[in-house]
Design a protein around this nucleic acid. Sequence first.
DNA 1: GCTCGAAATATTGTATACATTTATTAATAA
DNA 2: TTATTAATAAATGTATACAATATTTCGAGC
Lengths: 254, 254
Amino acid sequence: MTRLMRNGDPRAAQTLKAQLRLRQMILDGELCAGERVPELMLVKRTGVSRTPIRAALLRLAEEGLLEPSSSGGFVVRAFDEAEMYDAIDVRGMLEGAAARRAARRRPSHAELSDLRDCVGAMDAIVKRRSLSVEQFSDFVRLNERYHSLLVGLARSSVLTRAVERIAALPFASPGAFVVAQSALADAHQTLITSQEQHRAILEALAAGASARAESVAREHSNLAKRNLHAAATREAAPRKAAGGNLIRLQLAAV
Amino acid sequence: MTRLMRNGDPRAAQTLKAQLRLRQMILDGELCAGERVPELMLVKRTGVSRTPIRAALLRLAEEGLLEPSSSGGFVVRAFDEAEMYDAIDVRGMLEGAAARRAARRRPSHAELSDLRDCVGAMDAIVKRRSLSVEQFSDFVRLNERYHSLLVGLARSSVLTRAVERIAALPFASPGAFVVAQSALADAHQTLITSQEQHRAILEALAAGASARAESVAREHSNLAKRNLHAAATREAAPRKAAGGNLIRLQLAAV
DNA sequence: GCTCGAAATATTGTATACATTTATTAATAA
DNA sequence: TTATTAATAAATGTATACAATATTTCGAGC
């Protein structure tokens, strides 16, 4: 019985459960922006008691998905389009700084092997003529790994933390951007460009070209902004809808 | 009785109390870096129950002063010198971006009035031949206000949040730097340089000179780094001591 | 019919009891 | 004496009861 509860980290299991479920609810649009999040509702839906619920609420608030209400408790935070651009921009800035620092350290061939593997795996996907949904989501995962590795190469815990925090916002997620479900064809072209930049950054790191590494990494985030813009103009209706589940759109990679 | 508890925000009073006390304990060096922070100890010292204590621990962990332990609970986070430089650097980067955005908006005369007042008040202090401790700490407060106003002028909630988070680290605090208690004379010269940069940024904002605003704001953080370096080399002993209360040094402004 | 107010409800903040896990200590054997 | 292990102690994670506050609803008065 207690053996069954040992899946994953047995420590703070209830809190984690509540946290994941709540985040999912927000991202899925079950909770609309601006709406209060009563603890008892979460107790009913998650089956855990109020204490871990409260811990999860605090965590999500720090993540930026919730904001404290003046009368106590939390409400789902609303993001407008400008804030999304800002978040992507800040991420780009921080990743640019990380790339610069990483390049300045002149990482060894061995240190870059993970990143090279990552780029190689993404190449294998991008080269294909057409992409399935599975391949697309594989690319998303690899892309997140790429960005994570890149930032890690800067060897700065402060920078890593800062990036992780800004990337906790779903629309600013590491190399993630919003794309309409039907736009897979367009997305493929974006992937090619994105991949070219990934490769350029890798080259710059290996060469110790810190300025180039920074500028390409910085530019890389503009791709995400452009994609956000494309998605925003293409289907303005569902996004602006009541400021509601503006995060509901399918998340994909760059 | 309940009337007396209404000092300040009656909401979450116990949590706030615990949070402030715990932060003070960390900054004062009552708790050494790497040390566990048992909840019961805080219960005894603060007089509040475990629930608000836990909330405070979570908050402080998000602030970066604590880090979760693998076996549960939290330990006081240790920072080495490199991380301090990093934090100041990241703050400078973000403030630079904020200054650029603020200047690009071409803020009106009225929008800049608070900032001008702030600079004026700091001028009045810096112009004096010698500084008392009170005047020095007045400058610290004004300086923090200046930085806060500057970032606010960018009108970006994302950027503001990011700066607030990095500045939550005491040694990266808005324009705050570490200075030896005895070095007030040296500090005065630093204040003059700092004030010159404050004025330059203000000018750049008024003129809409975004590039200049950014570069000066960026450079401004180098002053903080230099001061940290000076304090570090001047008295290496107490800071390196066991990685202990490295934050114990008196905090002052730039 | 509408507004203002009071009771009722709901929700949060706090305290505490319980269970499980981790750390410490004591004891025993090699 | 040292290492290993069992037992004790401590600390965290969780659940729930209680108190104070905010919100909603229902009704009275204009």
